[in-house]
Amino acid sequence: MPITRVEEFNDPGPMPRDVWPATLSPVRQLLDEGLDLDPVTVFVGDNGVGKSTIVEAIALQFGMGPEGGGTGSQHSTRPSESMLCEHIRLRREPGAPRGGFFMRAETMHGFFTYLEEHPNRSRPEPRFHERSHGESFLDFVIDRARWPGLWILDEPESALSFSGCLALIGLLQSIVDSGIGQVILSTHSPVLAAFPGATIHEVGEWGLRRTAWEDLDLVRHQRSFLESPERYLRHLTDEDD
C-alpha cells in the first residue's frame, strides 16, 4: 500500500497540544498514538470534528495539492490548510506507488478550471466543466483509474446523488481490487461508509474509534429519520415556536 501508518513527526519538535488543530480530540489522538491504515479507510463524523483536517494533512504530506489534484499539483487559490501536515510522517511499503489523487468536492470546480487552463498536451482529457458536478466528479475518477496510487476523497457525496455514490464505490472498489490502489475517504454518507471491506473510524469529541457500519451514529440517526421524519421535523418546528 502507498501508506501503512500515519504518526507524529517530532523533528524539530512535537506539535503543541494547546494549538489548533491539536486541540481537536481526533487530531490529538492521531499525534499521540498514530494510526494504522488499511486498503480502504473511512472517516465518519459530524461537521467540525476534524476528519477533513486529518485527510487534508495526509494528502499534503503525500505531496498532493491542498485544493485537490495529483501528486505535485500546484493548484491553489486561497491557502487555508492547517499546520498538521508539517507534524506527521507517513509510513510506506517498499516499492509502493508514490502517485495519487486528492479529491475534495468543495474545490473541484476550481481544480477543473485549472486543468482547462493548463491542458495536458500529450493526452487530451475530458472537458469536466461541460458535465454536471456529479458527472464530472465520476469522469475524473474514470479518467485516472488506471493509474496506481493513493486516492484521498473528502466528502465526495456533496457532488453525488444516491446512484452516483454507488457508482463511485464501484469505481474505487475496482481500483482496490486490482491491487494498484488504496482509498482514504471522509464522508457523511451512510452509502459511502458502507464501502465493502472498509475499516471505519468514527470521529468525534471522543477522538477516533473503530466502529462497525451498523453501529455508526450516522447510520442509526438516518435510519430513525427515514422511519419517522415527522419526529425530527416537529422538534425543529417546536423550537422555532
Rank of each mutant, 00 (worst) to 15 (best):
S228L: 10
A212P: 09
I169Y: 02
A212N: 11
H201P: 15
P196R: 04
H235S: 15
H188T: 04
G179D: 00
V203L: 08
S163T: 15
A194N: 13
Q222H: 14
E227K: 09
S224K: 11
T187W: 06
W213A: 10
Y232Q: 10
L185T: 04
F195D: 08
P229Q: 05
F225P: 08
R231T: 14
L185S: 05
T237S: 15
E214N: 10
V219T: 13
V191C: 06
H221C: 12
H221R: 13
L168P: 02
W213M: 04
P190I: 05
W213E: 10
I180A: 14
L168C: 03
D215H: 06
E227T: 11
L192P: 00
L166A: 09
G197F: 06
C165E: 14
E205A: 15
G207A: 07
V219W: 09
E205R: 13
T187C: 06
R234E: 11
I184A: 03
L218R: 00
R223Q: 12
P229A: 06
S186C: 08
Y232M: 14
G181Q: 02
S161I: 14
I184L: 07
V191H: 04
L172F: 00
L233Q: 09
F225I: 03
D217N: 14
T237E: 15
A167Y: 07
V219L: 07
S189W: 03
S189E: 01
Y232H: 14
E230S: 15
D215V: 03
L218W: 01
T211N: 11
I169F: 02
A167T: 09
R234K: 11
S163Y: 08
I169V: 03
S224I: 12
L233K: 08
L226D: 12
V203T: 14
L218D: 02
H188W: 02
L192E: 00
H188L: 08
A212Q: 14
P190Y: 08
S174I: 01
A193G: 02
V183K: 00
G204C: 10
D217L: 11
E214G: 12
D177I: 02
S161V: 12
A193V: 01
Q222C: 11
T237Y: 14
F195A: 12
L166S: 08
T211L: 08
D215T: 08
H235D: 15
R210K: 13
H201F: 15
L216M: 10
H188V: 05
A198W: 05
E214W: 07
E205G: 10
V176C: 02
L192Q: 00
T211F: 09
H201Q: 15
L233G: 08
V191P: 03
I180T: 13
F195G: 10
T187P: 01
H221M: 12
F195E: 08
A193Q: 01
F225D: 05
C165K: 07
G181K: 02
S224D: 14
Y232R: 13
S228I: 07
S174K: 07
L216Y: 05
I180L: 13
Y232F: 14
Q182F: 00
D217C: 09
I200G: 01
I180M: 14
T211W: 11
T199W: 05
I184P: 04
